[in-house]
Amino acid sequence: MDLTPHAASAATTSPLRAPTRPAAISAVGLAKSYGDKVVLDGIDLTIPEGTVFALLGPNGAGKTTTVQILSTLLSASAGQARVAGHDITREPDAVRTAIGVTGQFAALDSLLNARENLLLMADLHHLDRREGRRRATELLRRFDLTDAATKPVATFSGGMRRKLDLAMTLVGDPRIIFLDEPTTGLDPRSRRTMWEIIRSLVADDGVTIFLTTQYLDEADQLADRIAVLDRGKLVAEGTADELKRRMPGGHIRLRFAGLDDLESAAAVFGAATPDRDALSLQIPGDGRIPTVRAVLDALDTASLQAESLTVHTPDLDDVFLALTGRPQHEERSPQARRSPDSRMENAR
């Protein structure tokens, strides 16, 4: 009995499903070159409103370039894109009004306190003083920073700085937020706090999140859809579960009480690999309920009983390595290093 899943090639993208919501971000043939060096090679994206989209890729894959183009900080060499319904080339000011950008490193004035940083951002967004104060108070409460409102930012922990940084992005009430490595350098508790904030922005406010991250578990936890970018091309896109199911290596492991039962089960499952020392049988499979049910039915038919059954599925690390052939690293192009703070730029 062969339960090996007939999956598509790992390096081929799955067909895009028609989104049930309007597109917050769409791109067709988006490309960027510097002379004869191609950084972004004609990518297509469709990101529905009110969802979290994660873009993964190794160093130099084009992640930062993609974010810079979509946030109007960099012009594309070819292709078209619309953000919040506006063409990024013809309507850059309208795009900037609709988005917020939070970079990997918190862009805060350490000489000011938390409230003063938020009021500075309110001024950049041309809010009147009353509305600016109201917005600052609301965001301090939402991010649990009220008690630290008058403390210098220089005294803040990493987690507090990241929360304030995201709060500053929200001063302009953006409908789309680009988050570049939002939890880099944070301890596990602070990371989970940021995850909850991100989830609430989507669930409660309907915000669309475009996330780049080097933490694959972060994409697994947060993203509705994930795309993998490698050498400027999208090599895969889908939900986390869809991407994992397309990877080889998933299997069901059965453990038996004795060698006779193991040998009998091995005869039932032709593609299985027995481990006689551990009295276990490894059966290729995708881990889905129908596959597990088929294994149990086959055991019942053969009047065999396993002592235990465990399902092993590939994780996003396996997906990433299979698609790119190398570990995940953060992209840092020369253009990204010398760019001004994009949030300040968009607020002006």
Score class of each variant (00 low, 15 high):
residue 54 A to S: 13
residue 43 I to D: 05
residue 75 S to C: 06
residue 128 D to V: 01
residue 67 V to I: 13
residue 59 N to R: 06
residue 122 A to Y: 08
residue 71 S to D: 06
residue 24 A to T: 01
residue 46 T to V: 15
residue 100 G to C: 08
residue 97 T to R: 15
residue 101 V to F: 14
residue 86 H to R: 02
residue 41 D to E: 04
residue 58 P to M: 08
residue 15 P to V: 11
residue 138 E to K: 11
residue 117 N to W: 05
residue 117 N to V: 07
residue 119 L to S: 06
residue 43 I to M: 09
residue 94 A to E: 14
residue 127 L to H: 11
residue 53 F to I: 01
residue 85 G to L: 00
residue 26 S to Q: 15
residue 134 R to F: 08
residue 113 N to E: 10
residue 56 L to E: 13
residue 99 I to E: 11
residue 72 T to D: 08
residue 54 A to G: 12
residue 122 A to W: 04
residue 56 L to C: 07
residue 76 A to L: 05
residue 19 P to E: 05
residue 103 G to D: 08
residue 110 S to K: 11
residue 138 E to N: 04
residue 112 L to I: 03
residue 24 A to W: 00
residue 27 A to L: 09
residue 17 R to E: 14
residue 23 A to W: 00
residue 44 D to C: 01
residue 117 N to G: 12
residue 91 E to R: 12
residue 101 V to D: 00
residue 76 A to R: 14
residue 100 G to W: 02
residue 61 A to P: 10
residue 40 L to P: 07
residue 68 Q to C: 04
residue 131 E to G: 10
residue 124 L to N: 06
residue 100 G to M: 12
residue 123 D to W: 02
residue 136 A to T: 03
residue 62 G to R: 02
residue 131 E to Y: 00
residue 21 R to W: 01
residue 65 T to D: 05
residue 62 G to V: 01
residue 68 Q to I: 00
residue 73 L to C: 11
residue 47 I to T: 02
residue 138 E to M: 11
residue 20 T to G: 13
residue 98 A to W: 04
residue 127 L to P: 05
residue 14 S to K: 09
residue 42 G to P: 06
residue 77 S to R: 04
residue 125 H to T: 01
residue 52 V to T: 14
residue 97 T to I: 01
residue 20 T to S: 13
residue 50 G to C: 07
residue 81 A to G: 09
residue 111 L to D: 14
residue 70 L to W: 03
residue 98 A to P: 03
residue 129 R to Y: 06
residue 89 T to P: 04
residue 95 V to N: 10
residue 134 R to S: 13
residue 44 D to K: 02
residue 86 H to S: 09
residue 99 I to K: 10
residue 131 E to M: 07
residue 43 I to H: 12
residue 16 L to V: 12
residue 107 A to V: 02
residue 109 D to N: 15
residue 61 A to T: 04
residue 56 L to P: 08
residue 122 A to V: 07
residue 131 E to L: 12
residue 15 P to Y: 09
residue 36 D to C: 02
residue 121 M to Y: 08
residue 104 Q to M: 06
residue 42 G to C: 08
residue 92 P to N: 13
residue 123 D to G: 14
residue 85 G to S: 01
residue 24 A to E: 00
residue 54 A to L: 01
residue 33 S to Q: 15
residue 34 Y to E: 10
residue 94 A to K: 15
residue 15 P to E: 10
residue 129 R to V: 12
residue 29 G to T: 07
residue 104 Q to K: 07
residue 68 Q to M: 15
residue 113 N to A: 06
residue 80 Q to M: 10
residue 110 S to T: 13
residue 62 G to L: 03
residue 75 S to I: 01
residue 27 A to T: 10
residue 98 A to C: 08
residue 34 Y to M: 04
residue 108 L to R: 11
residue 77 S to C: 04
residue 47 I to D: 00
residue 83 V to G: 00
residue 89 T to C: 13
residue 60 G to S: 10
residue 43 I to C: 08
